[in-house]
Nucleic acid binder design. Structure first.
Lengths: 219, 219
DNA sequence: GTCTATAGAACGATAGAC
DNA sequence: GTCTATCGTTCTATAGAC
């Protein structure tokens, strides 16, 4: 899938049809447009993935009911189906996850909306579950931490090259199972951290120490 | 800057020159190519930013010497110069940070290399500092956590629309100062979390509970 | 040095033959 | 229904007038 390898913008319909052995007109005939093709690709993969996520979360909630599910297990329900899919369908998911990871920072609003359409239900469902596990956080800070976790997840899906460069080969970004296990531990600790003071209010510094005051002038 | 608003691929030289009131040929005359223009844009912003980061880290290291700098302060040296710049140069940095955040998951290797060229020195320097603050982590897991932090940072820089949708307006993604403060607390807790067991080894589950075994078949 | 004009190729989409 | 051929547009890059 060239959307994944090159990004949506850089993947031309010509290159896509050539790689698939099809002809240029077939995409517009079967899907209607380049954007509709993307929508179809996303739905084909994400719908079954999201079903497995919801099912897994549901099982956890039944198990712990009426107590909140620990945040580790909520994250596991969110992330494990991805690494399972990547394990069982090596080539195809190893490419698709690049695309998914990149969609989170998609600049074009129309394209981002395609992605959000497949994501919003899952987002609401998992967000509510994590909220129950983290009653110690003000609503505002809770959302930020969800945001950070999503960012770490997206980055893990699509920025493997950077991990290889950063770790000088010590980490294998294609091993999603390892990444997911690490991420669960990392993000769960992040969610459990005590709330910071309101940043509008005086000096909510979590660590002591040095003043900073740089003011920019590089433009 | 249209690179930021539309992404590198979607921003055409025509649109860029039109928005700047310049003519189409001027970019190739002054910079040589579209890629060289990106390189120039990145360098102009990131070089002074990275100087401020290194200076801030250096001050922390002098302050704590010979003890390791707490991870909160290392993160602060990495992140605070960004939010300072965004605060003092509202429009221009609010756009540029979109571009930077997106560069982390840039699909085109040549373009990613442009970014990494401006980043590698900072990466090595800050990674070494955090390593000293986190001696409890195996090397492998340490790199993964750096990776997650970078992902959360990139996401915070460029995925503001998602935060707005996720929080239904409760968070303001343009308030980088708040995001940075939250992120420091979140990531520092993530770094401090105890190491997980090797995921190759048996069942390093941080929480008890239910088996999972989904195996994919959605292709 | 800075512009207009345009080359040469690739783009998404479609009309119309079969 | 699936193809070829091509439309009209846009792309990056450059040649050459001023």
């Amino acid at each position: 899938m060239l959307f994944a390898e090159r990004g949506y913008e850089a993947a031309s319909l010509r290159a896509i049809t050539a790689a698939a052995g099809a002809n240029l007109a077939s995409i517009n005939y079967h899907f209607g447009s380049k954007e509709a093709l993307l929508r179809a690709v996303m739905a084909r993969r994400l719908v079954p993935l999201n079903l497995r996520r919801l099912e897994m979360l549901g099982r956890f909630e039944a198990e712990y009911d009426p107590a909140p599910v620990p945040v580790e297990n909520i994250l596991r329900a969110l992330l494990e189906p991805i690494s399972s899919a990547a394990r069982s369908q090596e080539g195809s998911w190893q490419r698709f996850r690049l695309l998914v990871g990149r969609m989170y920072s998609e600049p074009t609003p129309r394209i981002l909306a395609v992605f959000w359409g497949e994501l919003s239900e899952i987002a609401g469902r998992f967000q509510a579950a994590i909220r129950r596990a983290c009653p110690h956080l003000p609503e505002n800070e809770f959302y930020w931490r969800v945001h950070f976790t999503v960012g770490a997840m997206a980055h893990t899906l699509s920025a493997g090259t950077l991990l290889e460069m950063l770790s000088r080969g010590k980490c294998d970004p294609s091993d999603l199972a390892e990444g997911v296990e690490r991420l669960i531990a990392f993000a769960a600790a992040g969610f459990r951290a005590p709330a910071t003071e309101a940043p509008g209010g005086a000096g909510g510094r979590p660590a002591e120490s040095g003043r900073t005051g740089p003011q920019g002038a590089d433009s």
